[in-house]
Design a protein around this nucleic acid. Structure first.
Lengths: 243, 243
DNA sequence: CGATCGCTTGAGCTATCTCAACCGGCGTGG
DNA sequence: CCACGCCGGTTGAGATAGCTCAAGCGATCG
């Protein structure tokens, strides 16, 4: 089960290890404050250069790129524990935007802390690189999904992924998890049209596999969902690690 | 134009800066040798844990993931200067495979050098994280391409991207660059079927936009190619940086 | 000389898209 | 308090980009 520090979930490499005192001390040292933003707030803007980095404590959001055509590609969904702004931290600017889907509580770090970290805490700096590599891995997975799976499998895969992540965060209550996005968000993430997404969701609903309504996802048949998603039901779950 | 050290292209953050003496010294300190492999060699295997990291000096290759269905998702194409194995370096295992498409000459680093680097060279460690973030950015771009563009635009975009990268490496001769891949590789990268890729290439060929044959890509009309790719012809090129 | 590999082309099929309309809930302003 | 407009979700219908199957071709190789 989830063992992260409720106060601020800075984590080491193994997501099932509890935080050590040293880590908590580290955390508090670099944390520069907390922030709450309303639903709909754009936290970071593509092309901007945010002086702040965040760890999400509560709420949900999404990362996306705006395309020349006015469409959006949702890169991924942001859940509690996720680190936001690494790109802005190491590159000159963000290459995607970050938006709060619900009200969010964030742990704020100053961008300068990155330098301090690299200078004085090489092990934590290493963790950060590791985090970037993991992110890269997940993007590669997404690429494979968009490139090679049909609509229903993409949606099933997204549900499994979100469910596993939520499970690792202890957010599941009776096979239900909060999923406060719009169908359009999911469509933009999976490269499907809104209409097709809607019709496919209906299929899953009527087949008694998964019901997503009113901001809440209810998995009725995890095993079948996995099979639609072309996944073993007893694989190691695809959770996203926390730093 | 390209100013990278011909001997081994370890680079700093701005890809147009020449290498400093200090960087060259650094390079030589960590380099543990050179390696040549034949075309077709699998350099790294998904799930394996390579003790070595590489920088590609000569030749070309590709990164790919194998899917449950037996298909392949090509993550990207590897050109000279690219760093190979960061994932294996910081994670416990590679999440994709790396294959040599042509004969390759590689600069070899020992995995342990990563630790040394993080401990003693925080600035270089920072560069590495930056590199990972850039990689993440490019994957995000690819995601958007697969998610939202139709076949011909995807192919055009891939050509522009490869052409820009080749240009930065000084590999262009009279609008021609080496592109020693199979149509199947491109199809696997773009999430298209081989047949459709083939027919689309024919279109571009007959329209006098770009001709790809015998391992060599000839851009006849860069401007039109960009427009098909939904790109401004005078945008900042999408080159991939070197470390 | 047969086998294999990469490329090419035709034909029919379908997953997915676009367009268009409608519905219920909610917030706002008259 | 009602009416209107907007937003997110839902559904139908027709159009099409891209898929699969299948066959053929030239080059290379043992």
């Amino acid at each position: 089960m989830n063992t992260r520090c409720q106060n601020c979930p800075l984590r080491t490499r193994d997501i099932f290890d509890p935080m050590t005192d040293r880590e908590i001390a580290f955390m508090q040292k670099f944390k520069s404050g907390e922030l709450e933003v309303d639903a709909g707030t754009t936290l970071m803007m593509e092309g901007s250069n945010s002086p702040q980095l965040y760890t999400l404590l509560e709420g949900m959001g999404l990362r996306y790129k705006s395309l020349e055509t006015g469409e959006r590609q949702v890169i991924n969904f942001i859940l509690p524990g996720d680190f936001i702004g690494l790109q802005a931290g190491v590159m000159s600017e963000m290459k995607h935007s970050v938006e709060a889907t619900t009200r969010m509580k964030l742990c704020v770090f100053d961008r300068k802390m990155l330098w301090t970290m690299f200078r004085d805490h090489p092990d934590r700096a290493f963790d950060l690189t590791w985090l970037a590599a993991v992110e890269e891995h997940f993007l590669g997975e997404s690429l494979a999904i968009l490139g090679h799976m049909e609509g229903i499998a993409r949606i099933a895969r997204a549900f499994v992924q979100l469910f596993d992540r939520a499970a690792a965060l202890g957010m599941i209550k009776g096979a239900k998890m909060p999923l406060p996005y719009r169908q359009q968000d999911l469509a933009d993430a999976l490269g499907l049209s809104l209409v097709h997404t809607n019709k496919t969701l209906k299929l899953l609903r009527e087949d008694g596999v998964a019901v997503w309504r009113d901001g809440s996802l209810n998995i009725l048949d995890y095993k079948r969902l996995c099979s639609i998603a072309q996944l073993e039901a007893d694989r190691e779950p695809m959770t996203r690690p926390l730093i």
